[in-house]
Every structure is written in C-alpha cells, then in structure tokens.
Design a protein around this nucleic acid. Structure first.
Length: 423
RNA sequence: GGGCAGGUGGCGGAGCGGUCAAUCGCAGCAGACUGUAAAUCUGCCGCCCUAGGGCUACGGAGGUUCAAAUCCUCCCCUGCCCA
C-alpha cells in the first residue's frame, strides 16, 4: 500500500500540499518530522510523530528525525496562547540526548540501509549562522504580511498577550530547516500535526523561492479524546515514554483505560495492526464492549512497541493480580513485584508497633492532604487497608496489619494505592 | 494623566453590616451501578482537635462598629473608554 493510502486509511491525513500523491508515487522520498526538545523524554503525544517516521520507513521512504536543538531555544508559538519561557542551551542539549535514545527504538538507523533513518539537530546550522546572513538568506524571502497571516501568529496578535519578535521569527527558522534538509539530504516532505501547517507551508515556500523546487507537506489531525480531556495526560501528569518517568505498568494502564469511542482511532494511529485485525476489534467494541479486547490489544501493542515484550508481560500480569485475584492469595514477594512502581513510604518497625492513627498514616502516605480529608475518606468508605475496607475513622494501624511483617497496602478508592514498607 | 467597571475558595460567579467557612455551576474526591468504561444517582469538597468547639480566610494596610466579604480612608492590581 502506498504511504498516502495507508495514512488516509488510518485517519492520519488532515491536509497535504497539492501534488503530494503524484510525488510519492514517482519515487522513494526523504521526509522529516521535527521534535521539540522541551523535555528529556517524549510523551504519549509524540508517539504519533515517532510512528509517523516509522511508517515512512516501512513503506520504503527515508525518515529524518529532526531534533529542534536550535529552535527549542526560541519556542514555537503554534498552539500556544502565551509566550514560552526560554530553555538554556544545556537543557536543550540534554533533552535532545534523551530523545535520541527513544528514537532508536522506532527507527532503523543502519547506514547500510537504502532508506536508513537519519537524525539531525538543527542547532548544527542555526547556531553558527549570523544574524545578518540569516536576514539576507532567509528573511528576504518573506514579507511580514505573509508571516502575520499565519494562524498561530494572528491569534497572538489579536490576543491580549501579544507575541515577541523572537517567537514571531520561529517560522523563519523552521523554514530554514526545511531548506537545509532539502539541500543536504534531498528531503522533499515534511510532516507534523495540524498545528504545524503554517510552519510547514512557510518552509515549502522558501524552498520553492530559493531553489525553484516543489517540496511537500502533510499534517495529521490533532489528537483528541472523546471525554474532552487533553490526550496523554492523566490526573498524575503526562504519560512519558521514559520508564523512569512513567513505569511500563502505568503506561500499559493508560492505554487499557482508553475510552470505547477512541480505541479504534488509537489502534489505527498507534499500532501496526492491519485493516482486518482492526476491523475485527472494532466489531468486538460494538458487540462485546465489556471484554475490552480492543483496549487490551491496544495496550499490549503500544507497550510492546515502547518498552518491549518483557515489560509488557509484567504489566499484564500485574494488572491481573491487581484487578483480578485478591491480595490475600498473593505472597509478599508477589505484592512487592506487582506494586513495584506504586509510590511507597517507609516506616520503622518500632513506630508501627506503637501504633499509628489510620488517618495519620493516610496523610503520611500521601493519599490525603489533611487529616480532615482522611477522616472524610474513611467515613465515606473509600479507604482500604490490604484491600479490606476501613470503617473506623478513629482506628489505629499496628504491626498486626503488616503482611508478613513487611508491608501494608493502602488503597484509596478503586485504584490509587500506596505501599507502606516496614523497615 | 482623566473617566468607568472590577478584584471572593482550583476556575467561573453570588453575597453588599450579624443567621457567611461563605448560594450556585464547573473541576476534584469517595460511594452505588459497571467493563479498571461512559452516562447516571448519592455524599463530600479551608485547616486543626475527641463529640463540641477552635483557628485562618473574601487584593493589601489601617479605621468605624458589640459585630465587616459587606461601611470609611489610603495603597496595589486588572479590564474597558478618553487623552
């Protein structure tokens, strides 16, 4: 299947430049997507970009992952209502390193491969260029009128906040990236989310004006959730790809909890499953939603992609223990394994022998912000000690409650757990 | 610089001398239901302590009063309009 047909079927084409289809049919192309190094790890939202690059490669094209080491110092106004705070050079550099490691999971960088992936960092060409050179070589090709007509800029000019010259210039830098990649790597396609459309077309225009060549752009739709929340965010924060920031278990759970209304869309976006497989899963969502086969598959596929088969297996097993059988039949070692990534607090054996007010323990463990809140929680039946509901809000916890004398599992509501390790 | 309108709990937004820890909506938390879902329903939603009470709060600082989020003075900030 051609790249464009594949992306269309997956619902990943929002807009393209004219003539892209013909261009892709003619030859194997080199395409790039930019990554913003604002954090040391990519998050669930950036998965779309990663997979976009990987799809390019699988379908015979050469992907370039462009780390925005230089543009990251400036800040892209697209999709932002406020001026962004600037990162230091060292921060951006460190973040770029982190991102590089994650890219390697998804792309084959073998130099021997005809369409081996490339990684570029625009700090390479943006840092050395002088201001005067930049104005002559890039700025000269854009009218301010054109720049101001870009949606991202227009919104900021009309808004209260305004936009600084620095962020206003961002589109020139990104255009210049495209020009450099076109010259150096014969790159003729840039992809990204819809918020990048303005920057991408600016780049296409620059290449056409300077080199007289038609290059292309493709953007995919903004990722949304049916519940109206921001994709990739949970109560406890963003879902990161770095296992140190978001454990594989939590990562797996994030995907498993996908809304029925979104799961098919996500299967198309984030997995390699083909039409038939996804159609079959779509059918189960309609006929047996309670089985959650689609969610389970989605979680397994994506977790395997990001963390590998072993971590995925562990996450699945932990999920079964947690939501299936009860704690009672699990050994302490099992519990410690399953709750490996559950936040824990330590408590000395001596303190515990003396006994601790349950409410106090709840606060210490971070399940409630105040004792009043803890009392309320218990009164309402929302606290569980080793999976047994706690009914006495004035009760105490002692050594008797520690499983095997080593650990106590506190639970608030159906999901949120804290481990108290006895030391 | 002048005029006007405002600043209340995470947000929106009531209250305009006592009955205000502050109506209500959203967000959040818990319970029921359930599929580790959605929707719905119920309860909770400043802090502390043992019931009862205490403490800190309505932009900031003073003041009037037995009593102030509510009245007065000054200051700070925001929005709109005029210069």
């Amino acid at each position: 299947m051609s790249l464009l047909a594949e992306l269309h079927w997956r619902g990943m084409v929002s807009e393209t430049t004219d003539g892209l289809a013909a261009h892709l049919e003619r030859e194997s192309v080199t395409a790039y997507i930019g990554f913003d190094p604002t954090a040391a790890s990519l998050h669930a939202g950036s998965l779309l970009t990663l997979i976009g690059l990987a799809r390019l490669q699988r379908l015979g094209h050469r992907p370039i992952a462009l780390v925005g080491g230089g543009t990251g110092l400036i800040g892209d106004p697209s999709g932002k209502s406020q001026e962004r705070s600037l990162l230091t050079f060292d921060q951006v550099e460190a973040n770029a390193q982190g991102i590089r490691r994650q890219l390697e999971r998804f792309l084959d960088f073998s130099p021997s491969l005809a369409n081996g992936a490339l990684m570029r960092n625009n700090v390479e060409w943006l840092r050395p260029i002088g201001f005067l050179d930049f104005l002559r070589d890039v700025g000269k090709y854009f009218t301010v009128n054109y720049m101001m007509s870009k949606e991202s800029v227009k919104r900021r000019i009309e808004g209260e906040q305004g936009i600084t010259f620095t962020e206003f210039s961002y589109q020139l830098l990104q255009s210049y990236d495209y020009l450099v990649l076109h010259d150096r790597d014969r790159c003729t396609l840039q992809m990204g989310g819809t918020d990048q459309w303005g920057n991408i077309t600016a780049g296409c225009d620059l290449v056409r004006k300077v080199r007289g060549k038609n290059v292309h752009g493709l953007v995919w739709p903004l990722l949304t959730t049916s519940a109206g929340t921001k994709f990739g965010k949970t109560e406890s924060g963003a879902i990161w790809l770095d296992p140190a920031l978001t454990s594989p278990f939590r990562f797996y759970q994030f995907w498993l909890n996908t809304d029925d209304r979104d799961v098919v869309k996500y299967l198309k976006f984030f997995t390699w499953l083909d039409r038939d497989a996804i159609a079959a899963l779509e059918n189960t969502v309609a006929t047996a939603p309670e089985q959650r086969d689609a969610q389970r598959t989605l979680a397994r596929e994506v977790t395997t992609l990001v963390h590998g088969a072993q971590d995925t297996g562990n996450a699945e097993r932990a999920s079964r223990v947690l939501f299936g059988s009860s704690l009672a039949n699990a050994s302490v070692d099992d519990i410690l394994t399953v709750f490996e990534d559950v936040p824990s607090v330590e408590m000395t054996r001596a303190t515990l022998s003396a006994g601790v007010a349950t409410t106090e323990l709840v606060v210490t463990a971070g399940l409630a912000a105040s004792k009043g809140e803890a009392t309320r929680l218990i009164t309402q039946g929302g606290l569980y000690l080793n999976d047994q509901r706690v009914t006495d809000e004035r009760g105490r916890v002692t050594s008797d409650h520690a499983i095997d004398g080593r650990v106590i599992v506190l639970r608030k509501g159906q999901r949120e757990r804290r481990l108290v390790r006895i030391v």
